[in-house]
Design a protein around this nucleic acid. Structure first.
Lengths: 242, 242
DNA sequence: GGCGCCAATTGACCTGGATCAAGAACCAGA
DNA sequence: TCTGGTTCTTGATCCAGGTCAATTGGCGCC
């Protein structure tokens, strides 16, 4: 985590080396001239939980890479009902090419650090570099796959399956290296109960009750409301539905 | 509709002119040499409702353009619960670049006519033509926007809001020219009640009851279970939630 | 026309998750 | 260490939508 910050604060135009290392950032697609140009235009910023990054219907003038933390993408009905339609983890790209207005609200769920570029700079480079466009296409396809997976969860799973699915999703994102295998996993929840409810299409009370049930059944334990230990991942997977 | 078939049966390498005319097909991105090559490799096919186009987890060896009809993309849990995660209308592109296996099931909802190409041919052209990749990126972004819109519907809307949203979605797709304005609209439902239920995350009984209610309230009328007339679109919109 | 089949509707009842209302735990600041 | 606000949990009740069970309607076929 500190490594990433160093890359940026050092002021050297190796911008987004960290993103590249994780194989999904957009900057690795550029040649060194382009990188220098982009480095000049880019800026790193740190954001507090709850801060709004991009307002719904707002004109967007920059794109960003998530360097650390979790960003939630939400949609809201006029009466206040809210749904989280996506979670962006490092090193995801943030922004909607080819549209000036965002259809979603982007908000920091945890402390977030971002590297952002003016919209115009990225769009200029997209025209020059097909490789950059290719990366954006891959990331977009990945997000589409994730969105469709989640539609199955939202439309057809029960509350307890939803909560189990959510925990697995977080577990897999926090440390993708131990994806398979590893029976026991530990992580901090990046979302509050209210956020989790908005992600799952449930109420906070239902989420809380499901956590209680999982605790009672010895599947997980929770300390300080955030720090989760999954005792037996296989049992969570069984509950998540296949 | 017959126009499109003529383009293909005529055997002339102006393949997918029809797609191009609708501004979203992929073929317009190619130069004439490429079009000739693609025309040789492509084949037009007509498919009956209910026929499976792409099985879940199946290896995919071709991509297609939807020329007419509606294709449903579904996901299914092991116990049979099903969710429609996308509807593809003409001239949408069908296929998942950069992956050999499909994560969804594709099935004809109505009579469908397709123009399909071998995977390899498209992928070769994608490398040559950045314009083609650009079109795929735009289509994918559009699908992502639609998926996220639908997540809000699945997670947070009531049954009656869901049904109203669905009717508007179909109405807007059937004839996009009369998008705004036009108080009265008429169209054939491309989906059965069971399909609609799977799209909305409801049961057929609930869908049916909501239709009955809309009929009783004079918002719509239905003939032969498929032919829908929306009497007052504005009232539907009010019910769909904003 | 009558018959069989499947899709859609309708009704009666049940239940998972929402709602409403207290508490308990957590945490920041003094 | 207390104190006040926020977040989380727990309990009691309610209701939208699911489940189960007929009935009706559309349509092709004999």
């Amino acid at each position: 985590m500190n490594l990433r910050q160093d890359v940026h604060t050092a002021g050297i135009p190796v911008l987004c080396q960290a993103c590249e290392a994780r194989h999904r950032g957009v900057c690795g697609a550029l040649d060194s001239d382009q990188l220098v140009a982009l480095a000049k235009a880019s800026s790193k910023q740190t954001i507090e939980p709850g801060a709004e990054l991009v307002g719904d219907m707002e004109t967007v003038d920059h794109y960003s890479n998530v360097l650390a933390g979790v960003v939630k993408l939400t949609k809201t009905l006029s009466d206040g009902r809210q749904q989280i339609v996506g979670l962006q983890f490092a090193p995801d790209f943030l922004g909607r090419p080819f549209k000036t207005e965002s259809a979603v609200n982007a908000e920091a769920a945890t402390n977030v650090s971002l590297c952002s570029f003016p919209k115009a700079a990225i769009e200029r480079m997209m025209k020059q570099s097909p490789e950059l466009e290719n990366r954006l296409l891959r990331q977009t396809l990945k997000e589409l796959d994730e969105a469709r997976d989640w539609m199955l969860t939202l439309g057809r799973k029960t509350a307890s399956e939803k909560v189990a699915s959510f925990l697995l999703l977080i577990a897999n994102h926090i440390d993708p290296t131990l994806d398979e295998g590893e029976e026991k996993v530990t992580f901090d929840l990046p979302l509050t109960r209210a956020d989790i409810a908005d992600f799952l299409g449930l109420t906070i009370e239902t989420v809380s009750r499901q956590f209680t049930k999982l605790r009672a059944d010895g599947v997980i334990s929770i300390e300080n409301n955030r720090h989760v230990t999954v005792a037996r991942r296989e049992r969570l997977e069984a509950r998540a539905g296949r």
